[in-house]
Simulated scan of single mutants.
Amino acid sequence: MILYTPMSPAEIFPHDTNTLASRQFIVYQGRNMYVEQRGDGSYQLLQLLSTDPQDFLNDTFTPGTILSS
């Protein structure tokens, strides 16, 4: 089987199911994102899902950024 995906093998075949349970897709400031919920209730940006190239030039949406509600 061949998978054509931008996701890493660790995300497709996780070793720990608890890690995937804390990850979700959200809309933040009008942009779709793949995030991981942290213990304090904030979210860490894992991947920005956008078709607008300008979104990727915005430092607010850099992977690893902590998003607060």
Rank of each mutant, 00 (worst) to 15 (best):
Q29P: 00
N58A: 09
L57H: 12
L3I: 15
R31N: 10
Y43F: 15
E36K: 15
R23W: 01
E36L: 06
F61Q: 02
Q44R: 15
I2R: 13
I2Y: 12
I26A: 05
E11M: 09
Q29N: 13
P14F: 04
Q37W: 05
I26T: 11
D52M: 06
F56S: 07
F13I: 07
Q54I: 11
T65N: 14
T65Q: 07
L3F: 14
M7Y: 15
P9A: 03
L20N: 11
Q47F: 05
D40M: 05
S68C: 04
E11L: 11
Q29S: 08
P53W: 12
T51Q: 08
L3Y: 14
A10F: 04
S22R: 15
N18E: 10
T62S: 06
F25N: 09
T51V: 04
P63R: 10
I66F: 08
S68T: 15
F25R: 14
T19R: 13
G39T: 15
Y28C: 00
R38E: 11
L46W: 00
F25K: 13
H15T: 14
M1P: 05
Q44T: 04
L57A: 14
P63C: 08
P63I: 06
Q44M: 13
D16C: 07
Q29H: 13
Y4R: 14
V27W: 01
G64A: 07
L57Q: 14
A21V: 11
D55E: 07
T62D: 02
Y34N: 00
M1S: 14
S69M: 08
L3W: 10
I26Q: 03
Q44N: 03
G41V: 04
D55P: 04
S50F: 02
V27H: 02
F56D: 06
L45E: 00
S69V: 06
P9E: 07
